[in-house]
Design a protein around this nucleic acid. Structure first.
Lengths: 246, 246
DNA sequence: CGCGATCCTTGACCGAGATCAAACTGGAAT
DNA sequence: ATTCCAGTTTGATCTCGGTCAAGGATCGCG
């Protein structure tokens, strides 16, 4: 789907921007931009590291920045006044985060793992996007896909039981965490490391940490999964998971 | 926010398209398109009536059409194999429905009230949109706003109690159903008629019909709302509702 | 006006998942 | 090693909302 054979350079000539060696260059919304444009965009943005647990955007803040995820995983959350939290989205490398063309951000963004992002001032980005329809089109496709995923998750939150939620979650992770690199599509991962704590899984599924823990324990007891480490999952019986997912 | 003083004509000269008299012309994504474009778009689309309960798009169907809502209210739903349903979106006049730039639709669309829509073949629309950045920009803004709304709803589905869900729902309806016309912004409606049956409210909130009914009864008993008809709501104590909504 | 169908409400009961509390685990720091 | 501590698991109990089962209201229609 994307060309991954872009030449790797160890030294950057003067005319090259940081984008030329960016590992998500072919997958992020920047893909397809040619040289004058990529240079202009590169001049507006700057790279930033965010360590695990560190916030990047606050809910209800003025929407001041947008970003591309280069590396790592981040969560988008909304919270109630009394501290309940719901994870409303998860951003992986090449994903776009933030709220362009709007005054405020509806969700907080916090890094789940150490992460690197490429941030832009929102109004700079907005202006640039409006002048580059190809970029806006990429952003539109991404936003439509994210809306589809979000709606599927609403079904999970509103109508699925705890066992169904957990099974659906594990299958989803198995696909999302499969091929983050740029190799040929390898299919869903049999084993993987979750970027979430138990509490975060609970916040994603609309459950409590205790229920999540009990469901994991049960799947392990039934031989459906193995749990070699706190965050490690190995799927032993995918068919059983699919049956449970409903 | 939009200009509502577009002249009304009772007869249409030859060169006018149906769009020129369209009541959502100034609010839908078509707003801002000028004459050669609006004529081309008009030629591609056709108007269609959908009666209450009638489907317009089937979940998992090939995404063959997209549409603008002219009049009426429609629901977007996803269902599980065993028949559980979740309403994942509601479309009002001037809203855009369907999945452009994608092979399949993730949700079914069914009319809640008698409705009129302006439908386009998806591939015609896709091609036209790619050639008209201004249209794509409007669609992007709309999709981003819808994503924000959907994420706020995820919080409701995952973390709110039944009383909180009902209160949030009523306040949301009070705003959405306020000024569907094009008059000056009137603020939230004090009384309104729901476009939903009790079962549909349940499908929207991730509850059962019995729970919805009990919560309505309780709000009535507490003098927070009056319920003059099956679908009629009058808000007597908005502050109480806001407190309940959390 | 009365009939029937559909939608809605109410009641009794149940159970999945929340809550409260305590014990366990595994990695980091001393 | 030992201690410490956050994160996790497990157990006991409770409660909110679901389920099952009747009734009641409302509306379209003859």
């Amino acid at each position: 789907m994307h060309d991954c054979r872009r030449p790797l350079r160890l030294v950057e000539p003067e005319w090259m921007s940081a984008c030329d060696t960016c590992i998500v260059r072919n997958r992020a919304i920047c893909a397809g931009l040619e040289h004058p444009e990529i240079t202009a965009l590169s001049a507006m943005g700057r790279r930033r590291s965010v360590s695990a647990g560190e916030p990047l955007i606050w809910e209800d803040d003025d929407s001041l920045l947008v970003a591309n995820v280069i590396e790592g995983v981040l969560k988008l959350t909304t919270s109630t006044a009394d501290g309940r939290e719901q994870i409303v989205g998860v951003a992986y490398p090449s994903d776009f985060i933030g709220r362009p063309f709007g005054q405020t951000s509806a969700a907080s963004v916090v890094a789940l793992t150490d992460a690197r992002v490429c941030v832009f001032a929102r109004n700079d980005f907005d202006r640039f996007a409006r002048e580059h329809p190809e970029l806006e089109h990429k952003l539109l496709e991404r936003t439509l896909a994210e809306l589809d995923r979000t709606r599927a998750w609403m079904m999970l939150l509103g109508r699925k039981s705890a066992p169904e939620k957990i099974a659906t979650f594990l299958l989803d992770m198995s696909e999302r965490l499969a091929d983050n690199g740029c190799m040929a599509h390898t299919g869903p991962a049999r084993q993987f490391t979750l970027p979430f704590s138990r509490q975060q899984v609970a916040d994603l599924l609309g459950l409590t940490i205790e229920t999540v823990s009990r469901q994991f324990t049960r799947l392990k007891a039934d031989g459906v999964v193995a749990l070699p480490g706190r965050r490690d999952v190995e799927i032993l019986d995918r068919a059983a998971l699919q049956a449970l997912a409903g």
